[in-house]
Design a protein around this nucleic acid. Structure first.
Lengths: 218, 218
DNA sequence: CGATAGCTTGATGTACATCAAGGGATGTGG
DNA sequence: CCACATCCCTTGATGTACATCAAGCTATCG
């Protein structure tokens, strides 16, 4: 290798490292993640952790609009920057991506988010507290299930990154109501947990039935 | 203009007319509008009328996800085709558009719908009945206000295409609660109506204050 | 070891749903 | 033209799912 090649390789590595360092950031639990820089929307991919999008209302009211696990593309282009915030639920790592070069990825993310927002609209508008909690457990299991872990006999175990308070703000309920619904599901052997943080779905079919609001045994 | 130019212009006009005729359809009030053909999602622009997107739950529960006025681009690509339906609220006309040639228009529509869905999530999850009704009146006024009609002194008059029952299904309430909220607003002189179909916003600022959930006179 | 934060469970309150009855508009058949 | 029905809106009385208030429990941490 010529000294000139070495020089340009070093240059490439340096610039890669700069980009990589500039574009990848960690956020600790409960910290805000900016969705814009100098007023312009930015986009990133979540590589580790759990991020929530939310909006605040006057007084103490807050609504979590959606919760994302690893792999999701989250963009300031997809929210009202004046009203909407993002925060890390737990320690999280994000990699910023260029808006221009990733247009199709970003558009696809918007369509997925839109469908989720519609399903959540149905949940908030028409489901009972028990149905909301059941639906959300299934959703979180899908995003955070530990693959090949407790998946025997159809059971699924996952880390519930959200506190009951955060769940409540997502589901349009209160912390106490969430707790009561979870206790009920545990008592009925549909789910199981020792710490409230680690949840096992013991009867996925029963949970699905509850989530879709089937009338209990006509 | 050369004869060749004339020929190609005629060709363009003809093909435009053919497309236009083939692609434009009317729907009477309360009829479903298909969002797919042969299983594939289709897209159209609403040129006249009012269209609602909705989902049904078990038993009698229904949630209207959004309501669109003229100009909106509505696409089967933006919904879960297995769960979501569209219907004409009043006599409506739509023009189908090609998915391929209009990708950017369709993506832009998705982003707008997403932001609306987020605002509606806040409404459904955290707003009181009175706040929901106030927010929705402002939204509908924006979409259906008759320009240069009753806009003196900031007042806005518009046709409320939705029945109270439909409003309730949009706002996650009941018909009776919607009626009570509207009656209250009328009694308080914030809005006015003789037929329930034609509404005038008499005090837009008061309505905006109500909609954002400001605490009433601390 | 006290302090703080989150979870649980019980007692009570309330915003909205449900049930109910009546009225005005529009339509239809005799 | 007039019953008569139907649909939607309105308003009142009552019921209830969830919120609020409250107290104790457990785990984590400085």
């Amino acid at each position: 290798m010529s000294s000139r090649d070495e020089a340009s390789l070093a240059q490439v590595l340096t610039s890669f490292r700069q980009v990589s360092e500039a574009r990848s950031r960690s956020f600790s639990a409960q910290t805000g993640i900016p969705l814009a820089r100098l007023g312009a929307p930015i986009t990133f991919r979540l590589s580790r952790g759990c991020v929530a999008l939310y909006r605040d209302l006057s007084d103490e009211r807050r609504q979590i609009l959606d919760v994302f696990g690893p792999g999701w593309v989250i963009s300031g282009e997809h929210v009202d920057l004046h009203a909407c915030r993002a925060m890390a639920i737990c320690e999280s790592r994000v990699e910023e991506i260029e808006t221009e070069q990733n247009a199709e990825v970003i558009n696809e993310a918007a369509r997925r988010m839109l469908k989720r927002a519609q399903a959540h609209g149905l949940l908030l508008g028409r489901k009972t507290a028990a149905e909301r909690v059941a639906s959300t457990l299934l959703d979180l299991a899908g995003q955070f299930a530990r693959h090949g872990y407790g998946r025997n006999s159809g059971q699924i175990t996952f880390l519930l990154h959200l506190s009951h308070y955060e769940l409540a703000d997502w589901l349009g309920l209160t912390q106490e109501t969430v707790s009561r619904c979870l206790s009920r599901l545990k008592r009925d052997r549909v789910i199981g947990f020792n710490q409230p943080e680690l949840i096992t779905i013991r009867d996925p079919q029963a949970l699905r039935t509850l989530a879709t609001g089937a009338t209990p045994a006509a």
